[in-house]
């Protein structure tokens, strides 16, 4: 039976993740029920309010990015030249500048003529995050689909499967496993990038911290806490992705 070590490592990851989650939830519950008076934790309630927005951004952005990545990724792998080119243009354009630039463009330029599309800061943030990370995700999806062994396709043809059936039952299941770790990493990047929405006036947790700085001062505590909050969000996800990577069975 291979790899007893893998089981031990997995167990460690799981302990870490559960540990962090428990600590995080315990703290959160404590704060909601009884706002503490001791510094620096008295700063937490206003920050937690911003956290709800951060999570909305993260979840919304991730969902949009996943959809876009699947559609564009399969398009990039398509036999149809037009589809390949159009999705290729989308991917290169959105990878060609940073999320911040795209957020600014969506928030400041889109409301103007000739587009006249006015979006709230939250919508702009989710859209920018989704489209940007979706472009990177598309390349991950494309890579995973194209990495499928040719023999799988030939076997499917030999069994007289239709192209749709082959995609659904043979290619996508195998590609999905390959895709998960890189997509997981992209999701963590997206989570960190939600902080940029504070620059388009969205009251996420970073924005709350910045305004606390102006009202209360106490800068090291405010930004220190902010860093810790992001760490507690991102690091368990990082461990989760590493666990996924270690579990790849039939690579």
């Amino acid at each position: 039976m291979p790899n007893q070590g893998a089981w031990v490592r997995t167990r460690n990851y799981v302990f870490w993740i559960i540990g962090l989650l428990i600590v995080g939830i315990a703290i959160g519950v404590q704060l909601i029920t009884k706002p503490p008076e001791i510094a620096p934790f008295d700063l937490l309630p206003p920050l937690i309010r911003g956290l709800a927005t951060t999570i909305q951004l993260a979840v919304g952005g991730t969902l949009l990015a996943l959809v876009v990545a699947l559609v564009a990724g399969i398009g990039r792998a398509s036999k149809n030249r037009l589809i390949r080119t159009v999705t290729g243009i989308y991917v290169e354009v959105f990878r060609g500048s940073s999320v911040l630039v795209q957020m600014f463009w969506i928030f400041f330029v889109l409301p103007l003529p000739p587009f006249n599309i006015e979006l709230s800061a939250l919508q702009a943030g989710i859209l920018a995050l989704g489209l940007n990370v979706g472009a990177y995700g598309a390349e991950v999806v494309r890579g995973a689909v194209q990495a499928i062994d040719r023999g799988q396709i030939e076997a499917s043809v030999a069994l007289n499967m239709s192209p749709g059936l082959m995609m659904r039952r043979v290619i996508i299941p195998q590609a999905t496993v390959r895709m998960l770790p890189p997509l997981g990493n992209l999701m963590i990047e997206l989570l960190k990038a939600t902080s940029l929405a504070s620059l388009i006036t969205l009251s996420d947790v970073t924005f709350q911290a910045a305004s606390l700085r102006q009202t209360v001062g106490r800068i090291p505590e405010v930004f220190g806490l902010l860093l810790v909050i992001y760490f507690f969000l991102a690091f368990p996800l990082t461990l989760g992705v590493r666990w996924l990577e270690s579990r790849r069975q039939w690579a």
Binding site: K192, T194, T206, F223, G224, L227, F231, A234
Partner: peptide, 22 residues
């Protein structure tokens, strides 16, 4: 390294910009 990688660049920028003068 893990800590820096798990937190956004923007927040690190704020941290250094506002905390260092102190």
């Amino acid at each position: 390294v893990e800590f820096i990688r798990s937190t956004p660049l923007l927040v690190q920028l704020f941290f250094f910009f506002f905390v260092l003068p102190r």
